[in-house]
Amino acid sequence: MKTIIIDYGSGNLRSVHRTFERAAKDHKINSQIVTSDKPEDIAAADHIVLPGVGAFKDCYDGLSARAGVMDALYEAVQVQKKPFLGICVGMQLMATEGIEYKGSQGLDWIKGQVRIITPNAEQDLGLKVPHMGWNLLSENIKGRSHKILDGIEMGLHAYFVHSYQFHTDDENETILTTQYGEKITAMVAKDNLVGTQFHPEKSQKLGLDFIANFLNWKP
């Protein structure tokens, strides 16, 4: 098997790559991890990972600017329905649009909007933005989980660092949430798509288990 981590000039790619290698090794999964921005590597992969840190629009533009990447992604993910994991901004890019200084369109694979978090809106708790650190995961809708969470107990912590969050139009497509002055979307899923606001590559044991589940996932 082959897993591609899409390189579009953003963030902690190396860190993502290493954690995928370690998860595959620990769980005895035979998957070659490739970090690349070549359309042919996307086409050849069985699993597709879109990492991302930074601003929504910059990431979307970075992806669009790479020749053939958008088309290859669409073909692999939307037509061939290969398992896809978006991490952080990579997850947010699946939305219909992102609202930052001004709006930017997203991939529109999961209907919804990405907006700034407002942890002090209800009451001024002096909560900092970005939301940075370890926070508890819980089910958005009680009893409604996802195959990719098999063996991962609720009530564990994952590592977050972000200032924006994904509000899915369909509440059923938000699988996990966390609490930070308000409810924050922690994981979304639809068909062959999953996305995490937290960083599995930085979430120690929970992250390694989650990545192994993704590599074994057959949607």
Partner: peptide, 16 residues
């Protein structure tokens, strides 16, 4: 601080 309020106040972020 934000971490003293966590248990009472709808915030589960941990101090690091």
């Amino acid at each position: 601080s934000q971490f003293m309020q966590a248990t009472q106040q709808n915030n589960n972020l941990k101090a690091r």
